[in-house]
Amino acid sequence: MPKYLEYDYVVVGAGIAGCATSYFLSEHSDSVLLVDKNEKVTFGASGAAGAFLSPLLGKDNAFKSLITKSLKFSTQFYKSLKNDLLTNCGVCRIPKNQEDRDKFESYKTSMDFEYEEMGDGYFFPIGSQVNPSDICEYLTKDINTKLNYEINDLKQNEDDNSWIINNEIKAKDIILTTGADTRLIKEKYFNIRAVWGQKIDVSSTSKPNINYHKECSISKAIPYKDDLYKVSLGATHHRFDCDKDICNYCVEVANINSCSRCYKSDMVDADSLKLISLANDIIPIDNVNVLDVKIGARASSLDYFPMVGKLVDSAKSIEAYPHILNGSFIKEENLKMIENLHVINGVGGRGFVLSPYLAKSLVDNIINEKELDSNITTYRLFKRWAKRLKNKKK
């Protein structure tokens, strides 16, 4: 019988979702381990994020309500950690064109946050920004970590539903926060789109004193050296037509910033020039020099809602309720779930807004069995997948 390193909870993935989940779990247990294939926390999508905290504008609906709750929670959460982790300077949201401006006007009756008109745009005092690595390093400063660690084998112990990682680590519960890299999730209904993005830090003689957002985002300037300031510009959007069943290299590689299979150097250069051009369409960014480039694959679901909680075991559920394939409705609580396996995924481009709220919700669900919002559970994905299976059998 092999001797394992044993933990109550192992969180896989050290982006903002994994770091926040580890933090909230550590309030209930001293037996938490955070693992990641990278040598540091906050590589991948979280490291490439602009980490802007900004309201979602639009008519009232379930998705907007989720973003509003998350923004309120996450802003207060970051403030509560340490005074200098959150830069609350406000954001000016600028319509892209007349059609966009008309939409903004129609949204005024549905605004969830204070705002005032500013030039061509609308200024929201709640607009903020965090530094991705600073936040994640702070959240995990007291957490056991195992970095630069690749998981090649994950299997469940049938006796007690615990999980064995690489025949070395045993966990009562596993929480997967691996974003676009879904190798460890075997369920076919769990469908993730990788939306690639690039963020750049530049030096400039310009000194924006608030955040801006139009077709790209501009951060408030911070002193760099001499008469120069550092400004973050983000982010671009790319989808590659890769067949993930043949090659999933780009989301599996540890450091995508050194990968050139899809995100080639000419694309990096073109995206940097594009971001600088888009920024100058908002305010002048003078005497620009690119200091740093970060690239990552944001994980988005097909309906844009995140995915949180346990996974439905599709094979066991269909075996128990074969009439699912005839379109019959089955209550979520009656389905067969994969025990002691949880996920947070599909946070898209709003990871630093959504993740703390989702992590707290998931930990409350695991520890106190507090019910999750039905809009974010994986049940919705399984229902749609089963319906498609039914249609294929016709």
Rank of each mutant, 00 (worst) to 15 (best):
R101S: 11
E158G: 02
K390L: 09
V268W: 05
S219R: 11
L154A: 11
D313A: 10
E187I: 11
K155C: 08
A270V: 01
V290M: 10
D286L: 12
G327C: 13
N368G: 06
K310V: 04
M1K: 08
K331M: 14
L139K: 05
K331F: 14
Y379G: 05
A315G: 07
I282H: 00
K172P: 00
L57P: 02
P95E: 05
D30E: 15
H237S: 11
C250R: 02
F329S: 14
F329Q: 11
R261Q: 12
F43M: 08
Y149N: 05
K383M: 14
D313L: 12
R193Q: 14
K170C: 12
K79P: 08
K392G: 00
N148L: 05
L381K: 08
I218R: 10
I376C: 02
K390E: 13
G119M: 13
G119H: 12
S70W: 09
C89Y: 11
I367G: 04
L147A: 00
L358Q: 03
D269L: 13
V231G: 07
G296M: 10
I192D: 09
L228M: 14
G327S: 12
G127N: 11
K146A: 02
K141Y: 03
I151E: 03
N326V: 07
A320E: 15
T21S: 11
L311T: 06
Q76N: 15
K274A: 06
P284F: 04
Y78L: 15
C92I: 15
N280A: 08
D269P: 00
I175W: 03
S232R: 09
S22H: 02
L275T: 02
G18T: 04
Y212A: 08
Y122H: 10
W196C: 15
M307T: 02
D281P: 00
S31W: 03
